[in-house]
Amino acid sequence: MPQDNLVLKNLQKQGLLTASKPHVIILFMIRIVIDGEEQQLDTKKMRIETLLRRFHINPETALALRQGELLTEDEDLLEGDVCIIMRTTAEK
């Protein structure tokens, strides 16, 4: 099973994928949800490193996943990608 689905399924089952429990960021290249809030990302390509910096996420406290695969910080996200940023601990 793709890891993204597994993680999402877990989060939804536990009621964690809500605005009040900001633990995960789901990024669609056009549509993004950050800490429970949806945003538009006006770009077709973005490096994980840049993404983390843009959202002030310390890379020591997060991991990026795309289609079940862990991504290193030099990987590029392209339009249509679904990326999950998992924080090591809940943000708030």
Binding site: Q3, L6, Q14, T61, A62, L65, M86, T88
Partner: peptide
Amino acid sequence: REVLAYCILRAIEYHD
């Protein structure tokens, strides 16, 4: 972070 990565790579379904 290393523990979380291990957990993801082994597909361990934990109580998050």
